[in-house]
Nucleic acid binder design. Structure first.
Lengths: 259, 259
DNA sequence: ACCTGAACACCGTTCAAGT
DNA sequence: ACCTGAACACCGTTCAAGT
């Protein structure tokens, strides 16, 4: 009668549930990585035989989807938390807040994020890492209510998800690499062994390449994206179309013409 | 004595090799996806028992690395192809060319690209999808020889890889989704079933969200990135440091101050 | 109603044995 | 030198059986 994970503190049996299974799975992945997550190790974690979870979950694939849903749903909990934002600030403030919310989730669950990034979403246009219909609805509502055209809002949604995916996937992969002390710091012998010759710059800049400026770079790229969306937004006419040639020109040609 | 895959056209036995194994593996993944790629299906593909490949490859993990290396190495083959580019054009033309080279690879091997994106690179600073030391060396050499500081070139490398990863991972995932006709076109009943209520914009814009403008969006974001790198580059002093406050300010504050 | 034991098909991998 | 057969540990999953 010792208190296993299925017995609460008053000695009563605590039954399994989809919720509890998914939370245990997330915890397991967070601590030990995706590769050691199996139905059997999950059973151990829950103090239960592996087959028991099939009562609550339609197989491994469904469980992985449940993990993704559970993590991204933490985002629109935060949306509801902050109702005054909905009307007070501009769309830039909203995208800024959303970007940092997703980044916080990614850093909190670095081993889950690749799952969010590469798992096939429910519909093709639900782009990682914004894999929640409610978040997408919120996104479109906010931008359109601030004067974006339909097409402009969708363009912004695509550009925004691409930005988040690239930056955060690379950021969490370095976080994971740091956490696993498999390889020591990249000393010179390490680099030398990997390459024959003629890699002078890589060798010389190994230390600079290893520096971590993830926060500053994220911020920088985000400001730049918001800036671009603003320019496109101002440029679009009522029908939401870009004036031909103005935007799609390579910028250096535009600069040349300006002189 | 019928001509199986291990017998050339004159009837001689063609022995296995690491090269041949990796090419067969890439072909298998390209055609049927990562999930059906096993040591056993690879054996079938090669006309050989599954255990035979262990003579040439140190297990499954090593084989996956071999796939990644083989695909990204097709990039610096193209580098050598085009020697006049090395000196003639500017760094913008080089990055433009490199971006389209990586994009072509991604679209040629959409099922391999997620492997390039999420597999752990040899060193932490070798960022996907530019997972080739020779490509990185080429990158740094080109930018530094065009006047970039060491730090500026490394910053550009980071921003460039984030851009490629986000855009191409999302692009190939839609390509894969189109190829597998598992789910039909997203008709209205489909969307309705996925959500209870209150998703007016998502529902109304389902058609717009499903449109494919991958090429134009890639081009647009690339031009914008090159523009940003150019501004940062011009702004850096000889020591490669950004003037404090000028760049990291949110753009709308800068705009306000300008008035 | 909820969990378990036994079983099945499949996977990666090792190693002695074949040719 | 190169490939194979048999075997092992492990995986996801099913289903009848236990409580």
């Amino acid at each position: 009668v010792s208190g296993g994970p299925n017995v609460d503190r008053s000695g009563h049996r605590r039954p399994l549930s989809r919720e509890r299974i998914i939370e245990a799975a997330i915890d397991l992945v967070d601590r030990h990585g995706l590769s050691v997550f199996t139905m059997r190790s999950l059973g151990d974690e829950l103090g239960v035989e592996p087959m028991s979870v099939y009562r609550y979950v339609n197989g491994r694939e469904d469980l992985l989807e449940g993990i993704v849903d559970h993590v991204v749903s933490q985002l629109h909990l935060r949306v509801d938390d902050d109702p005054q934002r909905q009307h007070a600030d501009g769309w830039q403030a909203y995208l800024h807040w959303l970007a940092h919310g997703v980044r916080a989730l990614a850093r909190k669950h670095p081993n889950v994020f690749p799952l969010i990034a590469t798992g096939h979403p429910a519909t093709p246009w639900l782009r990682p890492p914004l894999r929640s219909l409610r978040v997408v609805e919120d996104f479109l509502t906010t931008l359109i209510s601030r004067g974006f055209s339909d097409e402009g809002a969708v363009l912004a949604y695509r550009a925004f998800s691409s930005f988040l995916l690239g930056h955060l996937l690379l950021e969490v992969s370095t976080v994971v690499a740091q956490a696993s002390p498999a390889e020591g710091p990249p000393d010179n012998g390490d680099v030398d062994r990997l390459l024959g010759g003629g890699l002078a710059h890589v060798r010389r800049l190994a230390a600079v390449l290893s520096e971590d400026h993830a926060t500053a770079e994220f911020e920088r790229a985000l400001e730049d994206l918001l800036d671009r969306l603003d320019r496109d937004h101002r440029m679009t006419d009522a029908a939401g179309r870009l004036p031909a040639g103005a935007v799609w020109q390579p910028w250096w040609m535009v600069v040349t013409l300006d002189r």
